[in-house]
Design a binder for these strands. Structure first.
Length: 261
DNA sequence: AGTACCACCTGACGGC
DNA sequence: TGCCGTCAGGTGGTAC
């Protein structure tokens, strides 16, 4: 479930497993995920190289290469990472394999092939080209208020708009709205300043909590929506039934009692 | 500017 | 058990 907290966990995973060790070779199984890049170029750039550090912006992960440039990973809907030595941990959906001299490999895994892999020299330039807004976990309160005041439309749609704020997806937008007690289909212009500040506070709190629990929904606090984000489940606060509606074709789950329009 | 809908891709799940 | 339709955390493009 690759949204901001998941990406933050991926970042920590790379940081704790894959930095500062020589890459023996790389292998790309399918070039479909590559953007502006050939498989040959990717493989030759990684071989004999080393990862120095990582950066995250929204749902994108940037891994700095010792010899210059960054490996960029986007995880789509089903992307994940694996770092292991044992062959029986092999995954049929692995696409990019990075083999280290120590016998371990880092694998980019994607069931649905909706992710993206590329190489860039300049992260800020990449962010500008993708027109991404500020990272949702790093944006400050004044920036956030300004972004909201410059938007119209539904609050949920706006929170998920990567060009406004980067990092929030379908699942976490539901959680942020649930914690803020705001209906997903509330129009931004109908929110008062207090609501916007609540959203900002809850957004940060949700990220902090999710990352603390390694982005594993079952470990989230009992007051969280995500572990019970399904129709016919009971609202963690009022125990009434969770409802599902659609916004631009995407499902939104909320509590009609706690989140009034 | 914002919304709905389609496409991409393919596994998971529920119903019959 | 098996087939089939529908749905799914992502983004990007189009028509209105």
């Amino acid at each position: 479930m690759p949204e901001l907290p998941d990406l933050e966990i991926f970042k920590q995973y790379i940081d704790s497993t894959s930095l500062h060790q020589e890459i023996e070779r790389a292998y790309i199984k399918n070039t479909k995920l590559l953007e502006n890049l050939t498989g040959e170029k990717l493989v030759s750039s990684l071989g004999g190289n080393e990862f120095d550090s990582t950066l995250r912006h929204g749902k994108y992960l940037f891994i700095k290469l010792r010899k210059g440039g960054f490996l960029v990973l986007h995880f789509g809907m089903t992307g994940e990472l694996g770092y292991f030595k044992n062959k029986n941990r092999e995954n049929p959906y692995g696409y990019l394999y990075i083999y280290y001299k120590n016998g371990y490999r880092l694998v980019y895994i994607s069931k649905r092939k909706l992710g993206m892999i590329t190489l860039v020299n300049n992260v800020d330039k990449f962010i500008a080209e993708k027109e991404l807004g500020p990272d949702a976990d790093k944006v400050n309160k004044n920036q956030f208020i300004k972004i909201m005041n410059n938007s119209r439309g539904y609050i949920k749609t706006t929170l998920m708009n990567q060009k406004k704020i980067a990092g929030i997806g379908n699942i976490y937008s539901d959680e942020i709205l649930f914690q803020s007690q705001i209906h997903p289909k509330k129009k931004i212009k109908e929110l008062i300043q207090d609501d916007i500040e609540t959203l900002y506070r809850k957004m940060k709190q949700v990220f902090r909590t999710a990352v603390k629990h390694k982005a594993i929904p079952d470990d989230f606090p009992a007051s969280y929506l995500i572990p019970v984000r399904n129709e016919k489940q009971k609202c963690p606060k009022c125990k009434k039934e969770i409802k599902r509606i659609k916004l631009s074709g995407r499902p939104a789950y909320y509590c009609p009692h706690c989140q009034k329009l």
